[in-house]
Nucleic acid binder design. Structure first.
Length: 435
RNA sequence: GCGGUAGUGGUGAAGUGGUUAACACACUGGUUUGUGGAUCCAGCAUGCGAGGGUUCGAUCCCCUUCUACCGCCCCA
């Protein structure tokens, strides 16, 4: 009988060691920056009713039709692992009546966690991936759009990211968008035969997508296509102009990209993406994307409430930071490594380590019964600042040796009075370094 | 869903249809009966992703499968 050989599911990752440090850094920074902007964290379930996602993302979107991790639970309910964060947050917003008068408007919230999409793993793309996202409900003010975009930019640059580009576009309101869509179809239909296979399909399913086709020939055709800007209502035009003006005032760089389209159906008016101009990360160039939406809250049974938000891909962010060498994270070394020899010393060593830990120090010891030399090597590997040696003599007298690993000097300490003596011993040893 | 490349010890990586699968790093022990980052010595893959097949014989040839990576679709 061969032993079972398990592997992690396709498109997933185990994170540990150095990698986790990067994740912690990013999550911590997100919490810090977002809270400055008045956003509070929300945690919603990782799975929801299938319909929640199919209704919000659009029945024809790829995310719904072929990428959803859905299943029927034991109660025969059709469930799905969340492919994105917004739907769950909107559901929670409605279900918990966060639109109520006791809550500040706009209601600003952020989330972070795993998302799931059944697709072929690739550069910057996984089946379980992680997003950090925000949503703000209850205001149509263009200044809020500008604030949200500003917040992403500030967050990313606070991590040391460079070569960022904010692409900005507007889809107009529902009516503008519908008019434009029709105009686009009217324009493209005569060219249908010339379009790439993919774009022919797009023309049927989601004509706006033809705009950002990668096919050169498509791009040439699309160059003469009608522009969304010509179909915007006065209100949408003003909104977009205001957003740009606020961003200008704040000194946030952006580029208007009339061909940018977002994948999920619920967006209108302002949409944006943050991408890297780093040519090495073409496949995963977009690290954050979002925009305004309306209708979602009503769709889920709440009052008419506008929203705006974005989602940011943590894996992509990390690979970008790595490429730019911004992840020089070192885990802090130990304060003390306790090297002990002989069976008699084990209990005392464990006790001393525990005492040091209670005093707030990082301390560890050998559990493998290794030689003194091996334990000193271990201490180096662990970047221990001091090594305390304990053998039979020390157990007998109670006096242990504290060695400064930088200078090599040693001092004695009464292991039964660590609380009183440790600071003084450290101070003495450190003072010697200064000389 | 479609197309391409790859898969050898903890890591990086050589290699060949045929007795013991290089080398380096790391690790463990010793040289120093209890003190570190150096030197030297020794140990460390019953195994070459998994399962079949061809063959007297396969890590090396063939098929299937899994996984990773790259491109398309789509997206974070």
């Amino acid at each position: 009988m061969a032993k079972a050989n398990y592997q992690k599911p396709k498109g997933t990752a185990d994170l540990f060691g150095q990698d986790v440090l990067a994740w912690q850094r990013i999550e911590q920074q997100a919490r810090l920056i977002f809270s400055r902007y008045g956003y509070g964290e929300i945690r919603t379930p990782m799975f929801e009713a299938f319909e929640l996602f199919s209704r919000s993302a659009g029945d024809t979107s790829d995310v719904v039709t072929k990428e959803m991790y859905d299943f029927f639970d034991k109660g025969d309910r059709h469930m799905a692992l969340r492919p994105e964060g917004t739907a769950g947050v909107v559901r929670a917003f409605v279900e918990n009546k966060l639109f109520g008068p006791e809550h500040e408007k706009p209601y600003k919230t952020f989330y972070m966690g795993p998302m799931f999409r059944y697709e072929r793993p690739q550069a910057g793309r996984f089946r379980q991936f992680h997003q950090i996202g925000v949503e703000a409900f209850g205001s149509t003010e263009p200044s809020l759009d500008a604030e949200v975009i500003t917040m992403v930019v500030k967050f990313l640059s606070s991590l040391g990211l460079k070569d960022l580009k904010v692409a900005l576009n507007t889809l107009g309101d529902q009516e503008s968008r519908a008019n434009y869509r029709q105009a686009l179809i009217d324009f493209l239909k005569p060219h249908e035969a010339e379009l790439s296979k993919d774009s022919q399909v797009r023309l049927e399913k989601n004509p706006l997508r033809v705009l950002d086709s990668k096919d050169k020939n498509d791009q040439a055709i699309v160059a003469d296509a009608p522009k969304i800007f010509d179909y915007l209502s006065e209100e949408s035009k003003e909104h977009f102009a205001a957003v740009k003006s606020y961003l200008d005032d704040l000194g946030i760089q952006y580029e208007v990209d009339q061909t940018m389209v977002r994948g999920l159906d619920y967006y209108n008016n302002t949409i944006f993406e943050v991408m890297t101009t780093d040519p090495n990360l073409k496949g995963a160039a977009t690290i954050a994307g979002g925009g305004r939406y309306s209708g979602l809250v009503e769709e889920f049974g709440g009052p008419e409430t506008p929203g705006i938000g974005f989602g940011l891909g943590v894996e992509r962010l990390i690979s970008l930071l790595e490429a730019q060498n911004q992840l020089n994270l070192e885990d802090a070394g130990l304060d003390f490594y306790l090297a002990h020899i002989g069976d008699a010393s084990r209990a005392k060593t464990l006790e001393l380590a525990t005492n040091l830990r209670d005093l707030g120090f990082k301390a560890d010891l050998d559990f493998a019964g290794r030689s003194m030399k091996a334990q000193f090597k271990a201490a180096n590997r662990r970047k221990a600042r001091f090594v305390i040696t304990i053998g039979d003599n020390e157990v007998e007298t109670g006096q242990v040796k504290v060695k400064d690993m930088i200078t090599g000097h040693q001092a004695d300490m009464d292991m039964n009075k660590v609380g009183e003596q440790i600071e003084k011993v450290i101070a003495e040893l450190v003072a010697e370094e200064a000389e």
